[in-house]
């Protein structure tokens, strides 16, 4: 149980709908002019987030579509990572934090689930690769060992081995590590470590994968590998990626949201955001006039 106890979002869901700042209402109502041929996987409505007395998110409403890649861009400190971390309730680990508003996962309130259930279904990869000081195999197997198999109970050895191989293949790492599964994860290069973290997150079969600036510490080649990976993964997984790299967002994302000072300024299909933004701030940012 987390010590920080945010109020269940349903308790005060959308208290005053018309209080949302005007700049958000226009384009970022969560329903951009999308040909929404895909189902909504996660939908956030009027999300506010506070660290103590500091409000980090202001009335965010946004939809994440199934089997699509959604990018969150914006200058540092704009709240894009905070937003990402509310989607698997990782922000609850921060003391004195408080969330208001509603997040639905498959139409069900995120706070009606067990927190470990949420985090199993919504996986996360962090900015700095953070493998455990264990073997490569044990890193990938960790989530399976604690979460057990769907029927309940611990996974058998064979099940574990198969699942680990499967996840490493999905993370395009299998060929590089198959001969040294029992070496320390720290023997891998930076890019490999990050893909190991992706494999570790994939092992528990998450429906959504949150990537928090996954390439910011990597060289261009490793970055390309991860971008390829994202492209392949989206057939089996919904992906949300936070990035400060606009080219990256343009390359990998189907939808892009632009955040500024804790507000979602604009959310739309990626080409529109980059070629024909509706908001002045977005245009300034994507054309490099600030940030």
């Amino acid at each position: 149980m987390s010590p920080a106890k945010p109020m269940p979002a349903s308790a005060q869901q959308a208290p005053e709908p018309d209080m949302a700042p005007p700049s958000v209402n226009m384009a970022a109502s969560g329903e951009p002019n999308l040909a929404a041929e895909s189902a909504t996987k996660i939908s956030a409505t009027d999300l506010n987030f506070h660290y103590g007395s500091f409000q980090a998110l202001h009335g965010i409403s946004m939809k994440i579509f199934e089997n699509r890649v959604t990018a969150c861009i914006g200058p540092s400190g704009c709240g894009k990572s905070t937003f990402l971390r509310t989607l698997n309730r990782m922000n609850e680990t921060v003391r004195h934090s408080r969330v208001e508003g509603e997040i639905l996962l498959d139409g069900q309130n995120l706070h009606s689930f067990e927190v470990s259930e949420v985090r199993r279904r919504v996986g996360m990869v962090f900015q700095r690769s953070n493998p455990f000081p264990k073997s490569i195999f044990d890193n990938v197997a960790y989530g399976l060992r604690i979460n057990g198999v769907p029927g309940g109970g611990s996974p058998s050895r064979g099940e574990l081995r198969d699942a680990v191989e499967h996840s490493l293949r999905r993370a395009a790492l299998w060929d590089e590590v198959k001969d040294k599964l029992h070496q320390s994860a720290y023997s891998l290069s930076g890019g490999q470590q990050q893909r190991l973290c992706i494999a570790r997150a994939l092992a528990v079969n998450p429906e959504v994968l949150l990537l928090d600036e996954p390439c910011s510490a990597l060289d261009p080649i490793a970055t390309t590998k991860i971008e390829d990976l994202i492209f392949h993964l989206k057939s089996s997984c919904t992906i949300v990626i936070v990035t400060h790299n606009m080219q990256q967002a343009a390359r990998v994302a189907d939808y892009t949201g632009f955040f500024l000072l804790g507000r979602l300024i604009e959310f739309d299909e990626t080409p529109l955001i980059f070629k024909n933004p509706a908001q002045k701030e977005t245009e300034d940012y994507v054309t490099g006039r600030f940030g």
Binding site: T93, V118, R119, G123, F126, R128, Y142, I146, C197
Partner: peptide, 25 residues
């Protein structure tokens, strides 16, 4: 803290992240 977060993000309980990850570290 990224070690704790990695475990929590995989669905570990507070105790599991402490005992399986933080204490061995």
């Amino acid at each position: 803290s990224d070690q704790r977060e990695a475990a929590l993000a995989l669905g570990a309980t507070r105790w599991e992240s402490t005992w399986d990850v933080v204490v061995p570290y």
